[in-house]
Simulated assay, not measured.
Amino acid sequence: MALTINSNLSALQGQNQLSQTQKTKEKLLAQLSAGKTTDNAANNPANAAISEALLAQINGSNQAINNANDGVSLAQTADGALNQIQDNTQQIQELAIQAGNGALSASNRQALQQQVDQLTQANSAIVQSTEFNGTPLLNSNNPTTFQVGPNGSADNQVNVPGINLAAAPASGGLNSYNANLNATGTIDISTQAGALAAQQSTAADLNTLASTRSTLGAVSNRFEASINDLQTASLNASAANSRISDTDFASASAQLAANQILGQAGLATQAQANISARSALSLLG
């Protein structure tokens, strides 16, 4: 190789190698500080795109889990109210059976009627007041739809059917409901004949309540199944994203140490390359 001054090829090659080593060190330090290899999309565009898609799926699944939990809470709120109405209706039925006893006087039945009135008024108040976040639960035919998946398709939705216990009994409402919360005689057991009719009315109400609670139970089970599925999907997507984007600290630290050594060696080589050019001066001595 010719001995030159203006073009020190060894120094130029050393500078290029030192620059590459420095860039690699900066990349590794960025990965170690961020904990991610995809913090800069330029490092690995394909992995960055895959990671973003996985993150969207993870975030969507996690939010869908929250939605499904809200659905469970709504169903539990409605079921709790129905359970109280059911208890009240069973008491009404017991009082109606008691009122059917021929040994009772009119005043006895009137006392029983007052108890029934209190219970029907309580049932009516529960029907009118039960709601979840402002949504009426027991006096509306409108279903409530919950998104329980990361995608906006119909198979990612669960519908809680509308419950309208304020409707006419023939349409799924209760005989023990009255829009007037102070109404009396909604269920009439003041006579022996009325007590017999009341037993039939309360039996119909109990069947309606049992069917409604069964429907809510099935919906709750569907929400729970969706939550379990979403949790599994979120976990698997998180594991996949970790393999793609998370920094392997052991490997990155080893690479960083190697590049630090290379950088020091490059600096020493650069110094030697600069010194070698000075040997040209000896020829002029």
Rank of each mutant, 00 (worst) to 15 (best):
A154E: 12
A154N: 12
D155G: 05
N156S: 12
N156E: 05
Q157W: 00
V158T: 13
N159F: 02
N159R: 02
V160G: 01
P161R: 00
P161S: 03
G162P: 04
I163V: 13
N164W: 05
L165G: 07
L165M: 01
L165S: 00
A166E: 03
A166Y: 00
A167G: 07
A167S: 14
A167W: 09
A167R: 04
A168M: 03
A168Q: 07
P169Y: 14
P169A: 09
P169E: 11
P169D: 01
A170T: 14
S171R: 00
S171G: 02
S171P: 02
G173R: 05
N175E: 00
N175R: 09
S176Q: 06
S176F: 05
S176H: 12
S176T: 13
S176L: 01
N178F: 06
A179K: 15
A179V: 10
A179W: 07
L181N: 15
N182H: 02
N182A: 13
A183Q: 01
A183K: 04
A183E: 10
T184I: 06
G185K: 04
G185P: 05
T186V: 15
T186H: 05
T186I: 02
I187E: 11
D188E: 02
I189D: 09
S190P: 04
T191M: 06
T191C: 05
Q192L: 11
Q192A: 13
A193F: 05
A193W: 06
G194N: 10
A195G: 06
A195P: 03
A195H: 05
L196C: 02
L196K: 13
A197M: 00
A197P: 01
A198R: 11
Q199N: 11
Q199M: 14
Q199A: 04
Q200S: 14
Q200M: 02
S201F: 10
S201R: 15
S201P: 02
A203E: 09
A203G: 04
A204V: 03
A204W: 08
A204F: 04
A204K: 13
D205A: 09
L206D: 10
N207L: 11
T208H: 07
T208K: 12
T208A: 13
L209Q: 07
A210V: 10
A210I: 09
S211H: 10
R213N: 09
R213F: 08
S214R: 06
S214A: 15
G217T: 14
G217A: 08
A218C: 04
A218K: 11
V219S: 11
V219W: 06
S220R: 03
S220I: 01
N221S: 11
N221I: 03
F223V: 08
F223C: 08
E224M: 11
E224N: 15
S226I: 03
S226L: 03
I227R: 13
N228V: 04
N228M: 03
L230R: 09
L230A: 07
Q231L: 12
Q231D: 11
T232Q: 14
